[in-house]
Nucleic acid binder design. Structure first.
Lengths: 153, 153
DNA sequence: ACCTTCGGTTGCAACATGCTACCAGCTTGG
DNA sequence: CCAAGCTGGTAGCATGTTGCAACCGAAGGT
């Protein structure tokens, strides 16, 4: 590859997000973090990922401000990984992927995990993309515009 | 790598989505498709990706039912790639990543593209994860549960 | 006819991924 | 308190994937 191409200077926020999260493993780590996992070993067992890969990804997520390393909550000398506020803001991304997967990647009746409301165990409502006035918009209702760069003399 | 690990048999919809989309290039292709791009050359110029990579990704997206190959709309003998309904359902995913990137990956005043309402050029409202009753939920308000596999006699 | 564009394919080099071993601090049972 | 086993990593290697550049046939333009 002569170095995987980076998007961290792209002007498109989607590209930068993609670059910041890193790769798919990272997103699954974030998913597990939302699910309450905090320890290296928990992630490793849950994902089945090689430990060196997990090490790399955790470091990248910490460096990127998505995770934070804190002293363990159980009083042991180990450390734990928790989501920063920035990392918690990835919730809609994970939910969007989850809903898409539920809708398109399982045959009827196939078992799968589901994210539900803790209070009543009912599934969540579908994510809606909506305009400033609350109207639900489709891709055709939107346009990408460039925000003017500040004028240079 | 001895083969990149696949998640297409995972019971977690997030993992399957991740697997179905393939990699980050694919997601940027989808983003461009939402932006109206349809031709091989358009994607190639927009992304700056090597043509062999683009070829691979487009084929994978077509095989995965995200894109469809159709005769060109301008009457030429070439073919174009358009989003299938399944592909269009990725809209919330792309929007979620875009909003996250806008919120966390740009310094104030840094220029970036923005997705706006076509009718009034105003930015979209933020995606909200909500329960079945419309209440906005945070990660802490939710739990992942396993859906029972159908009982086998 | 000639040249350009479009949409790829092929070959190669560099790099990332994954596997398996290994290892240094904790922590725990006896 | 001492050994055994966790926990959280590193190190080394084989293989796969990415990326670059060069090439190529068919369509289109002039």
């Amino acid at each position: 590859m002569v170095k995987r191409t980076s998007f961290d200077d792209s002007e498109c926020p989607v590209a930068r997000s993609v670059d910041a999260v890193g790769d798919w493993w990272s997103l699954l780590i974030v998913r597990d973090a939302f699910d309450g996992k905090r320890r290296f070993g928990e992630f490793q067992r849950s994902l089945g990922v090689a430990k060196n890969i997990l090490t790399t990804r955790l470091r990248a997520l910490v460096a990127g401000g998505v995770l934070d390393q804190v002293p363990a909550s159980d009083g042991s000398a180990y450390r734990e990984y928790v989501l920063t506020p920035k990392g918690q803001d990835l919730f809609p991304v994970v939910v969007a992927l989850r809903q898409w997967g539920e809708a398109h990647s399982f045959r009827p009746g196939e078992p799968h995990s589901r994210l539900v409301d803790r209070r009543n165990e009912r599934p969540l409502g579908p994510l809606r993309v909506q305009a400033a006035d609350g109207r639900v918009v489709t891709p055709d209702d939107t346009v990408v515009v460039k925000v003017e760069p500040p004028r240079e003399p």
